[in-house]
Write a protein that binds this DNA or RNA. Structure first.
Length: 472
RNA sequence: GGCCACGUGGCGGAGUGGUUACGCAACGGUCUGCAAAACCGUGUACCCCGGUUCAAUUCCGGGCGUGGCCUCCA
């Protein structure tokens, strides 16, 4: 089956052919570790996790290399460190901030069911590769030294602006930034810059005496080079990174290696809004992954990981997505209806004999059409409720493929259930109620049902007896 | 101001040059002491204006609206 992916560079959907099927290579821009990851940060992580899973399915888990970097050198990190730990030396404060944030990020994305990438390189551990690239770019006449900075000369690259689909002249006409006097061209960007005293600093390349640190763009060119080579298959990230970040990565890598392409496919996920508005701290609608999972700040409840993940893949990755309480409630309803459909067939979570439905793979092979894949899952759920065990197993397999954590679906796994005192109390009340029902004393039986409802227990009267679950 | 996207029923959201998407919610029914769940059924859509076409929600142009980038923000 052909996998088709949309490529931002050519603005077309086309068949994906790996450079080397025994090692399919993907790079995705990871977080800058200075604060809790918000739900917008979660989108590319989840989107490319789904792609990673699909590639592993198509080419074999051992034949896919997924690299997602950690940016741990950055002005925002410096600022945060100085703010949070004003009494510590800056470098020590920076280490505290990056270590803490890095751990939070990994806890959050693991909770969201994302597989760990094959490699997660840190920028500060790849300074040597960055300097090597910078030296190459200077040697090839694509970069120059000015005022202890190293800058990339955009005029040296005829194709500059192709990804963002705008010419240099258009960019300059629209620019609203002040241009540093040492730049040869207003659009030239920093590869290396001098550090202020106390800031992280490394010996500079290009014979610059003052110690310095890398610009933002060069790190991704360096790390993708080290782990994936000069040209690789897929480069992903949020659409906001198209310009300047990815444009500049392309310029650096292609000029350093004299290659026509950096990656064969450039993939970008759409932006995320919250309740119809841009997410911003100033608007007070900033919502972190941690808050969704562990607090009731958004929508007055904690959300299950599967609900969050489903809410994310319900929309095609290139479409804008509006993150709303209503959408989460809908996702929750869907998860529960699937849980109900699977439950009678007793498909164990982590059952390794489950297979991934072909219809699911077919949908995903069409540029990751997750909404269509979910529609197929609804059909499976329908058949499962009709008693078809095969469909139940397919649905479970599909859910597992998507990382929807079925183990958390069953409300009976709620912590209440492990409380045997609570259990026996519920069972006693149900027995009492059924006595009243048998005696047709419905006033009393309804009173008991209300009492149970107050405990969060919902009853289902079936032919064979009464079952219960924790209210959803 | 420049550039780039997007605009489908109450809501979410695929897709297609002519044929039911799907889901959530709502409504009617079956079942049930009543509920709940489940099942069956029902309704409402393709931003506006032109053009191409036998036929456009789908292609082209314009408009309006929303968003993104141009500010090291996924």
């Amino acid at each position: 089956m052909d996998l088709k992916l949309y490529d931002t560079l050519t603005r077309e959907k086309r068949v994906f052919v790996p450079l080397d099927p025994s090692n399919v290579r993907m790079y995705v821009c990871g977080p800058t570790v200075y604060d809790f990851a918000h739900i917008g940060n979660a989108r590319p992580v989840i989107v490319f996790d789904v792609l990673f899973r699909l590639l592993r399915h198509l080419y074999g888990a051992a034949h896919v290399t997924y690299v997602r970097n950690i940016t741990d050198v950055d002005d925002k990190i410096n600022a945060r460190a100085a703010e949070e730990y004003p009494d510590l030396p800056l470098n020590e404060a920076i280490r505290k901030v990056t270590e803490k944030t890095d751990k939070q990020f990994h806890d959050d994305v693991a909770a969201l069911g994302c597989l760990p990438p094959t490699v997660e390189p840190r920028a500060t551990e790849h300074i040597a590769e960055m300097k090597a690239l910078i030296e190459r770019l200077i040697a090839s006449g694509n970069a120059y030294v000015a005022d202890s900075n190293v800058l990339f000369s955009v005029r040296s690259m005829p194709d500059y602006g192709k990804l963002a689909k705008r010419s240099l002249d258009e960019m300059i006409a629209g620019a609203r930034v002040e241009v540093a006097p040492y730049k040869r061209d207003p659009m030239d960007f920093i590869l290396w810059k001098p550090s202020k005293p106390g800031e992280p600093a490394w010996p500079s390349p290009a014979g610059i005496a003052a110690p310095g640190r890398p610009g933002w763009h060069i790190e991704c060119s360096a790390m993708s080079w080290k782990y994936l080579g000069e040209t690789f298959d897929i480069h992903g990230g949020g659409i906001d990174l198209v310009f300047p970040h990815h444009e500049d990565e392309i310029a650096q890598s292609r000029c350093a290696f004299h290659t026509p392409l950096m990656a064969n496919f450039w993939m970008h996920n759409g932006f995320l809004q919250v309740e119809g508005e841009k997410m911003a701290k100033s608007l007070g609608n900033f919502v972190t992954i941690h808050e969704l999972l562990a607090t009731d700040k958004f929508g007055a409840m904690r959300w299950d990981r599967a609900v969050l993940r489903l809410a994310m893949i319900k929309t095609h990755y290139r479409q804008p997505i509006d993150w709303t309480v209503r959408a989460l409630e809908e996702s929750k309803a869907i998860i529960h209806s699937w849980a109900d459909a699977i439950q009678p067939h007793i498909v164990e979570p982590y059952d390794r004999s489950l297979s991934v439905p072909n219809l699911l793979i077919e949908a995903l092979c069409d540029d990751l059409n997750t909404p269509l894949a979910l529609a197929e899952m609804h059909k499976m759920a329908h058949a499962a409720r009709d008693g078809d065990e095969t469909s139940a197993r397919l649905l479970a397999g599909a859910a597992d493929f998507f990382g929807l954590h079925r183990s958390a679906w069953d409300s009976k796994l709620d912590q209440h259930i492990f409380d045997s005192a609570f259990n026996s109390r519920v069972d006693d009340l149900i027995a009492a109620r059924n006595q009243f029902r048998k005696a047709r004393n419905f006033a009393e039986s309804d009173r008991i049902r209300d009492e149970l409802a107050k405990l969060g227990v919902v009853l289902h009267d079936n032919k064979d007896g009464t079952t219960w679950e924790i209210a959803r």
